[in-house]
Design a protein around this nucleic acid. Structure first.
Lengths: 217, 217
DNA sequence: AAATATTTTTAGGTAAGTCTAAATTTATAA
DNA sequence: TTATAAATTTAGACTTACCTAAAAATATTT
């Protein structure tokens, strides 16, 4: 069994791309876990001893198969709880992250299996992030950035790549919520801002916003 | 904010009667928290510093108003989660305790308010234990032990005072579950065993069982 | 009421996870 | 390619929660 803290490090490494083959830095992990580099080094030794990460001094880390399995399971739990909070308890999508950060560490396989079942085995969370199945497999089609749509192309808002409450609240306010159909009208070369049709109205969003909205064609 | 561990001590003190005016022993707390007396003493000092308990060396402890509020809130969370696990996720009443022990420490007032709402503000958990409201008030009538029913008296099984899976599974198997109507037929003076009518059949249970089943008249 | 037993506390130590400051290694620039 | 900067690790220390063993206080017997 891994401690609460170990789980948070594994999750951080996973989110920083540690499941791939480029190594993750100590400093980035420290940032994401709100600790100091020295503390991260200590933990990396421990996780390496437990064979959850591949760690070479000064060279950063990647997750082992075992570490990846563990990390993905935490992600699965986090996202399922987010669905529960939004769908069943009526939270807004910008309110659930911190509660799910706690719930994700509850330890009961049976609990998560039944929760998933209860929620109808959702494939994505309230932000459109994919939910892996029990075996850690993601079943979700590729999404592309709104900013990359061609003029005239249509699609459905299906995810966001930024999760700050400020951004989510902005989307809420402007009606750019998950599931909405949109059509690209024009893209301003000058500042990268983008105009699109949504609910039969035309609205314009900045380049930054357009890069953080994910579309399914 | 109190740590996970502090919360467990407060809960233990509460369950040992620390909300009343007779002091709770160090050793009993050690038993209930699966620690040693010396560890308990350390923690009692800390809880006293935080004004959660009234602690006099060698004289045991009681909860302060603040400590009592905190403890009751943990009990509330535990029992609400048990209702969720049984009613929504389909767990059996003997399976939920340990999961709820984890869930009870999740920290979000909003979460609990919404969970209570979602569950229909239940007044008791799957074992018939009363669930206090937000303000720590218990709204539930007194229950009496099955063993104390008079011949001919009728009532409804509304709680249990033992929570071991073995006992709960026995009740399940013999059909002595919450909500069932029963009528006292006879009480054997010899060994305290008790015969009663349930679902039109007569069954006999031991004195020990009869003391751990709670009836609402 | 003295002797013994039990309970509780103190003293001193351990492990997990954190920190700061200093040392080391790697990366970047002159 | 040496000098400087940045990233990482080590060393040593702190806090929380736990432990064992010994000391002190309270309870129970005789």
């Amino acid at each position: 069994m891994n401690s609460f803290t170990e789980e948070n490090y594994l999750k951080a490494i996973y989110h920083l791309g540690g499941a791939g083959n480029t190594a993750v830095n100590t400093n980035r992990i420290a940032e994401l876990t709100s600790t100091k580099a020295a503390s991260v080094t200590d933990m990396l030794k421990k996780l390496a001893d437990k064979e959850l990460i591949n760690y070479i001094k000064y060279q950063g880390v990647t997750l082992t198969a075992k570490g990846k399995r563990t990390a993905i399971n935490i992600v699965r739990k986090h996202r399922l709880w987010e669905v529960f909070l939004v769908e069943k308890l009526g939270f807004k999508w910008d309110e659930v992250h911190s509660i799910a950060e706690e719930l994700e560490h509850i330890n009961s396989e049976q609990l998560i299996d039944r929760l998933a079942e209860f929620l109808g085995n959702p494939k994505s969370d309230p932000h459109g992030d994919p939910i892996p199945d029990k075996d850690g497999v993601f079943h979700k089609k590729e999404l592309i950035k709104l900013a990359e749509l061609l003029i005239g192309q249509e699609g459905k808002i299906s995810g966001v790549s930024e999760h700050s409450p400020a951004f989510l609240q902005y989307l809420e306010k402007t009606g750019l919520t998950l599931g909405k159909k949109i059509k690209m009208k024009e893209s301003l070369e000058y500042d990268g801002s983008v105009s699109l049709l949504i609910d039969k109205k035309e609205i314009t969003v900045s380049s930054k916003v357009a890069k953080n909205i994910l579309i399914q064609l």
